[in-house]
């Protein structure tokens, strides 16, 4: 059985359709890139897979669990135990510094551990920015905190919404290499949304979306 199964997902915002019946499967440990024009429903799809949003109709299974039927608290549990999110706009708590922002994710997962948080930030090359608050950091650095935060709880599913959107080629490459390394070590599943053809070359499979449905689905041949 596939790790993620979507069955005819429809998401409506009032009269607008963000998703018009998406069905697909993703295998465990796969790295999937999603591409498509703005407004095609990429973020919406990602949110629904990550249990952050619920579909208007259709079914979502992750690890065999039908997550669109979970109670709110169970969904929260699913999020903290199974997923790591990197958002399009890097969302960080403004009054916490880099380490504390990572620790916050640990806190909701189990308990805060500063040593581990420092380790996670070191992995993304931020060991010199540990005590900086988000407002004192560049967009790229903020995004890297988000990646460290998303990975600190050993998720089985990493959902990244344009994680490299604000980064230069150099940093983008660094992040992608980091992801690739971790992915090959820990075998978590990655779903990554991007506009950038360079980014979409990484990974194993590319989904093209348009107007709320999947237009093409192809493996990447290195």
């Amino acid at each position: 059985m596939s790790f993620i199964i979507l069955k005819n997902i429809v998401k409506e915002y009032g009269p607008a359709h963000a998703l018009r019946g998406v069905s697909m499967e993703i295998q465990k440990g796969q790295w999937v890139n999603i591409m498509g024009p703005s407004g095609s429903g990429k973020s919406t799809l990602l949110n629904i897979i990550g249990g952050l949003d619920t579909p208007t109709s259709g079914e979502v299974f992750v690890e065999g669990i039908k997550i669109n039927a979970l109670s709110e608290d169970d969904l929260a549990c699913f999020r903290r135990e199974k997923t790591g999110f990197v958002f399009q706009q890097s969302h960080l708590v403004p009054y916490l510094d880099a380490v504390e922002n990572v620790m916050l994710a640990q806190y909701f997962h189990s308990m805060a551990d500063e040593e581990e948080a420092v380790g996670a930030l070191t992995r993304v090359g931020l060991e010199h920015r540990l005590k900086h608050r988000p407002s004192q950091l560049s967009g790229g650095e903020q995004q890297r905190i988000c990646i460290a935060r998303a990975l600190t709880n050993d998720p089985v599913l990493l959902l990244a919404d344009e994680p490299t959107g604000n980064l230069d080629r150099e940093n983008t490459k660094m992040i992608l290499e980091l992801l690739k390394k971790l992915h090959s070590e820990e075998h978590f599943t990655i779903i990554l949304v991007t506009h950038d053809p360079f980014v979409s070359q990484w990974g194993e499979r590319v989904l093209m979306m348009e107007d709320g449905s999947i237009k093409s689905d192809a493996p990447i041949n290195p």
Partner: peptide
């Protein structure tokens, strides 16, 4: 509000 949404996304329950 944003902070609350973020906490939820990180898997915090309402009680937390």
């Amino acid at each position: 509000r944003e902070e609350i949404g973020l906490m939820k996304a990180l898997g915090a329950t309402k009680a937390q």
